[in-house]
Design a protein around this nucleic acid. Structure first.
Lengths: 207, 207
DNA sequence: GTCTATAAATGGATAGAC
DNA sequence: GTCTATCCATTTATAGAC
């Protein structure tokens, strides 16, 4: 009844609604019927576009994989282009990690889905820890190492600094973003600015 | 077939297995049948001891409520009795918050259950944030305020200090405890010791 | 108190009409 | 590509025997 263009749109709609439901109820509690209802199609249509329920999940995982690797590239380029460092700039970058990475419309719901699944699925646990902790920490460590190299900050333990830096972002995310409305996100941003400013003060990074 | 004493034991066994399954699969994905199988009884026996599935969950919530309020009391008493403060003691107390509170055999699985449920249930979200953030932060703020009062630390913002202190514990918990095996817990403890020592150094709390 | 048996609803998945 | 109709397994919950 539809062209191939329409078909891709349907497939995307199914994936989007599945992601929403997975992140709210968890993978197993989100039924194919419910996903279909949200996407405005019958169950059988879902099985035309996807092999089975797991295939939808795999599609979502791949989608985030692409987003994350693109994000890594753009972060690295932005840093390489930066001329000088200030406490304000550090805080803005930290807010960016929250808003553009953790709260990304694709990353966030997938993380919530994984945070539910990881309790019983080892693979989900690995993926969650990678996206939530390892990738940001690795990236941040590299940034601080380069900052020390260029003389912006004192030469010290880049890893420890990265952990403190990301710790501030992570706590704000968990406290004011996960499961909260959009209004609370502002609290998270304010919290991050405060925390990063204190950190910069101690490290001797100028205002 | 059993006395009333045996019956209470069965009821407890059902609640315990339910908690385990809820924390692994989430409330809705954990079936009454599976809970019964783990507890060694049939579904109908569960319905003899509990009104319905939600009644099991409510029982578990009440149980943790009791544990948490008792813990608050014992923490407060222990602090009131303390004569002096050192960085080592601060680290030990922080490890205690992790091991005796967050990793408590009743608190931890209930937190995991709530962390799954909060994505769709507002009540679970409130309860989660209260147990995970508000209670520890309130308590820690009071402790730092008293420490300043007694001259152990510089008079400053007790709330900000509490947030930094608990932030260290929280990150270690999320990174090395949630969904991890017992072996990783040691990493969390080491991470906490390191973080608290750095914090104490900055605040001028002696070794 | 615990069981067997069963009802009524919902789950994932497929066949075949259009 | 999407639908109706259906299959079969599993779910919550109840009735009644022991």
């Amino acid at each position: 009844m539809q062209t191939e263009g329409e078909s891709t749109a349907t497939r995307d709609r199914i994936a989007n609604e599945a992601l929403r439901l997975f992140s709210q109820k968890g993978y197993s509690a989100a039924s194919i019927r419910a996903i279909g209802a949200m996407a405005g199609v019958k169950e059988s249509t879902i099985y035309y576009h996807f092999k089975n329920k797991q295939d939808i999940m795999d599609t979502l995982l791949k989608r985030v994989e692409t987003i994350v690797s693109e994000m890594k590239k753009s972060f690295a380029e932005a840093f390489a282009a930066a001329g000088e460092i200030s406490a304000g700039a550090m805080a803005t970058v930290a807010e960016g990690v929250l808003m553009n990475y953790l709260m990304n419309e694709n990353v966030y719901p997938l993380m919530m889905t994984l945070s539910i699944e990881r309790m019983q699925a080892e693979e989900a646990q690995r993926e969650y820890k990678r996206i939530m902790f390892e990738l940001p920490l690795e990236h941040q460590e590299a940034v601080f190492a380069q900052m020390a190299e260029r003389g912006f900050i004192a030469r010290g333990d880049a890893r420890a600094l990265a952990e403190e830096y990301f710790g501030i972002i992570h706590l704000a995310f968990e406290r004011f973003c996960v499961g909260c409305g959009k209004a609370d996100t502002d609290k998270a941003r304010a919290q991050i600015r405060r925390g990063i400013k204190l950190l910069c003060e101690r490290e001797g990074i100028p205002e």
